[in-house]
Amino acid sequence: MFEVLVFVYENYWRGDACPEPQQLGRKLTAVGFEADEIKEALHWLDGLHLASHSTDLARATALPPAASMTLPATDSLRLYSVAEQDHLGAECLGFVSFLETAGILAPVMREIVLDRAMAANGNPVTLDDLKIIILMVYWSFGEEPDALVLDELCDDASDRLAH
């Protein structure tokens, strides 16, 4: 599935530039992806679209006080469930915490990243797969992370030389 997501990210500048699922599915089939991978990726992308669209809608409308409580506050503390800890693992949760502490990942985006990571296969999800998920969340909002963040998300850390 992640190879399909990388292809979509690289070939469609923003989430709103991506074709409808049926047309995208035909394009992915023509490129040579397996039907199961395409189906899984389209389902995952549908969840991403729903999450980002719901967030945009909540931001654009005046929500009643009870509804606005569903959006995390910027100063809130996020506690991870046992299922999240098991599925994401310490490395991924540490990376999410790093991005959030650095001010790179807003709480609303963090929640979408966690939701989409929980919807992904892998137990635990690998850090490379999490980085793709983070890129896709930025992509769905039509935003591109700054150059240093993009480098961190796209760079293969195994090639780095420690000093």
Rank of each mutant, 00 (worst) to 15 (best):
V137I: 08
M118G: 06
E20T: 05
V113F: 04
Q85I: 03
A17V: 04
D159T: 11
A119V: 05
A73T: 13
A147L: 12
G103M: 11
L161P: 00
D159C: 08
K131G: 04
F98Y: 15
A83N: 08
P64M: 09
A119W: 04
P21I: 04
V31L: 09
M69Y: 08
G122L: 05
L63Y: 09
A35Y: 04
A58L: 12
L135W: 02
R160Y: 13
S68W: 07
L79H: 10
G142Y: 10
M136G: 05
L79C: 07
G25R: 01
R116C: 02
R14Y: 11
R26Q: 15
D146S: 09
Q23I: 14
A66I: 06
T70M: 12
T29N: 11
N123K: 12
E34T: 03
L48H: 00
E10S: 13
E144A: 13
D151H: 10
A51W: 00
L79W: 06
L127T: 09
E10N: 15
E100M: 09
E100F: 05
L48M: 13
Q85M: 11
A147F: 09
H43Q: 14
E84M: 14
E37A: 14
A119P: 02
S54D: 15
V125R: 02
A62D: 09
T74S: 14
R59K: 13
E144R: 13
L71M: 11
V4Q: 01
S81A: 14
T29M: 12
R26N: 11
P21D: 04
V149C: 13
A83I: 07
I133W: 00
L28S: 02
I132M: 09
A58Q: 10
L50P: 00
H87A: 13
A120P: 03
T74K: 14
D129F: 02
V113M: 04
R160V: 06
Y80L: 07
A30E: 13
E100S: 15
E111R: 13
R26E: 15
R59I: 10
V82Y: 07
A162N: 03
V82C: 03
E91V: 12
T74D: 15
Y80I: 01
R110K: 12
N11H: 15
R26M: 09
S54P: 01
V108P: 00
P145E: 09
L135T: 01
S68V: 07
H49G: 08
P124T: 11
A106R: 12
G89C: 10
T61D: 07
A60C: 06
R59F: 11
A62W: 04
I38L: 02
M1Q: 01
A66F: 07
P145T: 09
L5H: 03
Q23W: 04
P145Y: 09
P65D: 11
H53Y: 11
F7Q: 05
E143T: 08
T74Q: 13
C92M: 03
E152N: 06
